[in-house]
Design a protein around this nucleic acid. Sequence first.
DNA 1: CAATCAATCAATCAATCAATTGAATAATAG
DNA 2: CTATTATTCAATTGATTGATTGATTGATTG
Lengths: 221, 221
Amino acid sequence: MSTSPKIALLEEYALVARTLSAPARLMLLEQLAQGERGVEALAEKTGLTLANCSQHLQQLRRAALVTSRREGKAVIYRLTDTKTLDLMDLLRVVAERNLTQVDQILRGLSDGQDAPEPITREDLARRLAEGSVTVLDVRPADEFAAGHIPGARNMMLAELERHLSMLDPSTEIVAYCRGPYCVYAHQAVTALRKHGFNARRLEGGLPEWREDGRKVRVNGD
Amino acid sequence: MSTSPKIALLEEYALVARTLSAPARLMLLEQLAQGERGVEALAEKTGLTLANCSQHLQQLRRAALVTSRREGKAVIYRLTDTKTLDLMDLLRVVAERNLTQVDQILRGLSDGQDAPEPITREDLARRLAEGSVTVLDVRPADEFAAGHIPGARNMMLAELERHLSMLDPSTEIVAYCRGPYCVYAHQAVTALRKHGFNARRLEGGLPEWREDGRKVRVNGD
DNA sequence: CAATCAATCAATCAATCAATTGAATAATAG
DNA sequence: CTATTATTCAATTGATTGATTGATTGATTG
């Protein structure tokens, strides 16, 4: 070994950090947290070109954050383990705690209003059992179909404003999306509150709900 | 805002990750975990040139992982908060779990022997109260002087082999150093076991012990 | 086996980064 | 006010990274 073991270890830790240091790769990991996917699907969801997406995925694989397998002519990628999500979440926590930039962006999402505290998954589960809450899944329809919180209604942002009349104004609404990195739920809550609804965000998203071991409904199960 | 808020947020999270993606900065953070320090002291401890060290510190400050204040003509840096240490530790956990490289390096440190599981801080505290254990602080003397586990003896690797006769072979020895990134304790345990001592590592190092709220002894207190 | 589809590879370019050097600034002591 | 000490800034170098393009490989289908 040319370098000392100490430096060699730090290089490896740094490799993991460097792999998380590109927005494109964070997006890919967020997508993979929803479930395994092929390269083309990931490219489409993230807006990357195919070749570029493939190369980012290979960097993720080099850092062992994802693994891949071949299935016919498709290559399916998935997260190596969910510890990576914990790592990303801690990244977010540190950034939100320390960087005023992040605070400003999040404030911008709630459009000047005071955003209410998110509801915990435990609380939501309790409220769901009581039936005292409307749950809104604001992800794209294909992700909803692949798995969602039982009883949730799927409605993306674009449709939301047109279908307000379908929502009961007397019941609290809880919106969720892909996870802590996803801004859909923030935006949905802002839109709903602007129309007088009592709406809150769920803490985390579907991957975190699933990781808790809670029930997930799959279309056509 | 030119980019979407989603990308803007990801850029900020990526900034934190990128800041952790250089071994030099990880070393600096490890040092700062021991306590606040001036630029020159940090440069000396990490082996960086002064200007280079200063620039790395400024990158850490841009990501808000450290803060600085002026004290006379010196600039003192310190960690913004201890969440950063949690982040670094999770980085290590993910790397150790997934990268075979890391495993090989750690195996190399224990020189072919099977390394025993580290002892938890809780267990060590209990054993210390009983007096049934020898605690060895294998950090440099200045760091020992700035704070150490009460009852610990300070002995760096170089001295260790010459002072084996001062250690009681019938008592278990627990070695600790700067923290999870530090290899001194690994190396000390390997050396001691090679000489027939019953030795183990402490889980984490002094910063983690301190963060638990346990007693720390400072020379000349 | 030729055609097709999915993914990767290879080459390129612009942008960014780390380390080095020497000059510049800030605070203090004489 | 000058010298000294501690740190930062600015400019340069070589290395690495991300995105793009077009060619190539692997697996399937007709």
